[in-house]
Amino acid sequence: MVSDSSSKPPISRVLAHYYGLNIAASRGRQKVCCPLHADENPSASVSVDTNRWNCFVCSISEDSFDVIMREEGCSFAEAKERAHREFGGGSSDVPPDVPGEPSGRVHQRPGPGRGSGSIRAGVRRFGATWS
């Protein structure tokens, strides 16, 4: 499914809300210090044109909804609803919940070393191990 980027909140507003980054509303890419790791030299860039940001050190690339989902720990549908409430757009095409239908969260059966079985997106901090 291809998403319509016009329904997404501006990446500059989302990054300002969650990280306090001040992004100019101009065209093109703007270099910034990554808010997810200690950064002395800018290692991330924000593109107002494509409504995305990425960090070359963290190997992360996100749009507005990805940031909201990671920061709020919510599903895509919930992120669109929060975007609509917080930023004034983004949930016009969210269908209402249907009883008995999956919530959209990613689940995996518990197994050795898997804990509860829920997979939650996140960023691994440098120096941290996966175990």
Rank of each mutant, 00 (worst) to 15 (best):
91 S>D: 15
66 D>A: 12
54 N>G: 04
75 S>Y: 05
29 R>F: 11
42 P>W: 01
64 S>V: 01
125 R>V: 10
107 H>G: 00
118 S>N: 09
3 S>E: 11
105 R>T: 01
125 R>K: 15
92 S>G: 15
21 L>C: 06
18 Y>C: 05
40 E>V: 08
113 G>D: 12
20 G>N: 07
94 V>H: 13
32 V>Y: 10
30 Q>V: 14
39 D>L: 00
67 V>A: 02
40 E>C: 03
86 E>P: 00
11 I>S: 02
41 N>Q: 13
1 M>I: 06
15 L>T: 02
103 S>Q: 07
33 C>E: 13
88 G>L: 13
88 G>H: 12
77 A>G: 08
96 P>N: 07
109 R>A: 10
14 V>T: 01
92 S>Y: 07
1 M>Q: 07
76 F>K: 14
42 P>I: 08
63 D>E: 06
110 P>M: 01
130 W>G: 02
11 I>W: 07
91 S>L: 06
113 G>A: 12
108 Q>V: 12
25 A>D: 15
28 G>Y: 07
106 V>P: 01
9 P>G: 10
45 S>V: 13
4 D>W: 05
102 P>C: 01
90 G>K: 00
100 G>M: 02
75 S>P: 12
38 A>N: 10
127 G>P: 05
101 E>N: 11
1 M>E: 04
72 E>M: 13
125 R>M: 13
4 D>F: 03
77 A>E: 15
